[in-house]
Design a protein around this nucleic acid. Structure first.
Lengths: 267, 267
DNA sequence: TACCGCGGAGACGTCGGATGAATCCGGCAC
DNA sequence: GTGCCGGATTCATCCGACGTCTCCGCGGTA
């Protein structure tokens, strides 16, 4: 096995064994490379690999740290990978979301707090139908809040990760189906209503209905035309790509390559 | 943004834009580094990062290729990351599996072929209760086959990925609960029976029962060995390994600290 | 013609050093 | 006490060199 891969496993083992805890600082690259028996160059490749999957956090001029290792961080990498799937996979991914999100919504119905219901209610009320982009933003926040209320962070982050990929599809849907805004808000309202009553079964059913509506449309679109969906992924990376193309201003802080691509985060 | 991160995004963009298709070979490192405007060292860090998440396949002495980008590959990285979660997260992860696997089993019931049923039947019959390790192996194959039969590769691979992490826990369970072998086989048999009849509801219910049984045990085990205060993963994880390897069975899982838990090609 | 072995070319793997840039931190002036 | 400054530390990037592996064409041989 390559020394770099060994280093990756050794660092991982240091974490799983407890020698390195979340938040801990690693020895300097020079020192660590010597103790692991490889060159600094090779070690840096290992560190970079662990950085992109959010296991390590490298701070220039400071040091390298173990991240909090929270599900949110570790699943971020999933968004990156999902971006690389083709149209057929998008349908399969949607099939997974179709399973997870109703279940999460059902869980949320059983344990959602009054405050959370109030927040969701306000969110839906405020989502007056202005424009598509605002709706997509609202949609992301809405679903994110609900799955978070399921009480299972891992489940919530997993759903968030696999949902981000469908953003563009939903945008396109919005562009081609005018009635979608009202319908989406109405469906959201129905879900909140079920949550308020702690009716898990109804909440779950309404979530499924909601998602299946999008899925149906997506299946038709993919199946119908040969070049249906606006090119998988690349476009909302445009900002990043611009930044990368050396004429743009450097992003302010902590620029990452694997930052999730949902419009919710800006760099 | 760091040049290495730029390179990662640029390579990703080359793939999503279609300039690089699955199986394609990248330009040599020297050439690519020049065209991307960075040193070979930095490019190598980018390539390494994309290699660990199975986007690129680097073949020494040959060249660097884009992988097939199949869900199976891209989700492999998930297994790596899941290894880093603590016990609390393991329960949450199990909560996700509890949702996904019954659903996948239900889907499988609707479309499973006679051949697949025959394979599963034979698999269960052959899984005569010999030893724990064989049972765990059987269990992995069994569930893998079923979820694969769901027809949704992405779903199947996702389940496989999040299941791999529970292997050690199941080993420990096996060591502490003698009757688990017979019970597991009986439950597997029941699931196959429902699949054979294409009874999705029953298949799903039996899958849920099966998984919930493990989950219940896991929750008890974790709750028993943990304080109300969340503990870092290291201690409890080590406890799992110790418990496993203290016994004469000596499962391979805990033996090699540098083991690679993701099912990859050996190196 | 078909097969086999060899060696060169190309490509990745690893190393060590040098320089630049960001951060941290202690000392000093006010 | 506050704020500034410079040295020390650490990561970022680049460069050049050498090793090893793989591929593939060129002859040699049967």
């Amino acid at each position: 096995m390559a020394v770099t891969d060994e280093a990756i496993l050794k660092i991982k083992e240091m974490i799983t064994s407890g020698r390195l805890a979340p938040g801990d600082r690693l020895p300097p690259e020079k020192e660590l490379s010597e103790s692991l028996g490889l060159s600094r160059s090779s070690l840096r490749e290992a560190v970079k690999a662990l950085e992109v999957i959010r296991v390590l956090d490298v701070r220039r001029g400071d040091g390298t740290y173990v991240t909090s290792l929270e599900p949110r961080l570790l699943l971020e990498a999933l968004s990156f990978v999902i971006d690389l799937h083709d149209d057929k996979s998008v349908l399969e991914i949607f099939g997974v979301r179709r399973i997870l999100e109703p279940a999460a919504t059902g869980l949320a119905a059983m344990r959602v707090s009054d405050e959370e219901v109030a927040e969701l209610t306000e969110l839906v009320d405020r989502a007056a139908a202005d424009d598509i982009e605002a709706l997509v933003e609202h949609d992301l926040v809405f679903h994110s809040k609900i799955v978070k209320a399921s009480g299972n962070d891992y489940l919530a982050e997993l759903i968030d990760s696999i949902s981000s990929h469908t953003v563009r599809a939903r945008i396109w849907r919005g562009l081609t189906q005018g009635s979608v805004i009202d319908r989406t808000i109405a469906e959201h309202s129905g879900i909140v209503s079920a949550l308020r009553e702690h009716d898990a079964e109804l909440a779950s059913a309404r979530a499924l209905t909601h998602i299946a509506g999008i899925e149906d449309w997506l299946r038709t679109a993919v199946g119908a035309t040969s070049d249906p969906i606006p090119r998988p992924l690349a476009e909302d990376d445009a900002a990043l790509d611009d930044a990368a193309s050396d004429d743009a201003v450097a992003p302010a802080a902590g620029a990452d390559s694997l930052r999730r691509t949902t419009p919710t985060t800006k760099e």
